[in-house]
Simulated assay, not measured.
Amino acid sequence: MPASPTSTIVPKDPTSTSRLPIAALILMALTGFIVIMTETLPAGLLPQIADAYSTTEGVAGQLVTVYALGTIVAAIPAIALTRGTDRKRLLLIGLLGFLVANTITALASTLALALVARFVAGAFSGLLWGMLAGYSRRIVSPEHAGRALAIAMTGTPLALSIGTPIGSWLGTVIGWRWSFAVISALTVIVTLLVLAIVPNASGQRPETQRALVRVLVIPGVWAILVVVFTWMLAHNLVYTYIAPYLAGAGAILRPDAALFIFGLAALLGIWLTGVFIDNSLRRLALVSTATFILAGVILILLPTSVPATVTAIALWGIGFGGASTQLQTAMGNAAGSSGDVANAMLTTAFNIAIFGGGALGAVLVDSLGATTLPIAMVLLSGIALVTISANRHRAFPR
């Protein structure tokens, strides 16, 4: 039986500590909160944005598309070029990039300028997501690496369940530009606190830096990327088209209520992940993907039942809540000192799955009906479950 991954593979930084630096990890979580808020906010403000620029909601929706495109294009090159840079400096650069991009978005007089700003924000998103996982794991002792990452990743479910709805509400009350201005103000506060509180971690030494192709062939990396794509594609299919699914299934449940339930359940999922990840990563990943399958089966068998739908959404949220932490931990363990580059690849695969969810979901909804989405969710989650189960030595070791 191989040794515990977190005790042998996580690079130890001289600044790491045996105690969890809670304040620093919370600031990393707030960084993730800012990133996800920036990414998802336009989706809840499309009517106001379209009206401001005298265009259609479909065209205004490209503010979301170009953000994801920026992440896909920039994530791997940005991390590859900055491997030797101190992590704290890189974190501050990323936050300042978001400050500039969101401020320009709030002030943009034309849609073209707003689109450019969103692309830039997406590029800085790729930079931050590529380095946050490794950074949070390196400022603690190896036996607490998984728990530290779980805390640092809480910003994602918080943004989805609380931040984006509040930002959308604020945009309808005082104007969509003010929603982006508020994110900029929060970024200023977080940047100053990071400067004062978060410990530094050194960049990767030149002699330990692998070429990108060599990172891809590290045992376990490809398997994790397959799990990322299939699992997150299963998620995005249903998440993106939750409104037409609920309408087509006949369940009397509003989309905003469904997403609120999902967000709360995701918080529970990430808490459970934080408790068990340092000792039971493989079991967590197996249970989480199996939970997706169970949720999909319930939606297939009992589509009109509100209690069943709520139960399925809660299970789905619990399974999703810890997914990012589990996958990034697995990738960090497998890639070792090349974890930042490998996690940039993970970020790219994640965003390709977002694109794929939108494209494949549109085909399914328009051609076969939204009620087929849970079937695709079950099939894709099944591929992820089988891949995790089969890769018991490197990607998801016992």
Rank of each mutant, 00 (worst) to 15 (best):
V287L: 15
P397K: 10
L233W: 14
A390T: 12
D366Q: 14
G94D: 06
T191E: 09
G44M: 08
L302P: 00
A29C: 09
G70K: 12
I252C: 00
L128W: 04
R138L: 09
L111I: 13
G97E: 03
L92H: 07
I197N: 03
V188D: 04
V386D: 05
P206H: 10
W169C: 00
V386G: 07
G167A: 10
L327E: 04
P206F: 11
P2I: 13
R87F: 15
T191N: 04
T82S: 14
E143R: 15
L186Q: 00
L107M: 12
G339L: 03
R282A: 06
A258I: 08
T329Y: 14
R394I: 03
L364C: 05
A295N: 01
R283F: 14
A106K: 00
G339M: 13
E39M: 10
Q62H: 15
P219Q: 04
I151Y: 04
L299D: 07
L170I: 15
M331F: 14
L128V: 02
T15K: 12
T240I: 15
L225R: 06
T65A: 14
V363H: 09
G203V: 06
G97W: 03
I104Y: 05
T240L: 11
N200W: 03
S305D: 05
W316I: 01
L380D: 04
V221L: 12
W316V: 01
D13A: 14
T85A: 09
L127S: 10
H144E: 05
P2M: 10
A211D: 15
A234M: 00
A265H: 04
A290C: 07
G70D: 06
V100N: 09
W231A: 13
G167V: 04
A335M: 07
G175K: 10
G269K: 12
G332Y: 08
A185G: 13
V188H: 00
V35P: 03
I9H: 14
A249M: 10
I26E: 01
A150G: 12
V215W: 02
T187E: 00
Q326S: 12
T110E: 09
L380N: 08
T31D: 00
V386F: 12
P219Y: 08
A52L: 09
I76G: 04
M331N: 02
I139D: 05
S337H: 14
V221P: 03
G126I: 07
S7K: 06
M28A: 07
T273I: 08
A266T: 10
R392A: 15
L233D: 02
T8R: 10
S324T: 15
V310E: 02
A344Y: 05
V190H: 06
P307Y: 13
P307S: 03
W222M: 11
F292M: 11
N391E: 15
G263H: 11
L246R: 06
V64C: 01
M331A: 04
P199K: 08
N102C: 09
R282S: 06
M345R: 05
V194E: 01
V217E: 05
Y53W: 08
G296L: 11
F180Q: 04
G44F: 07
L237Q: 05
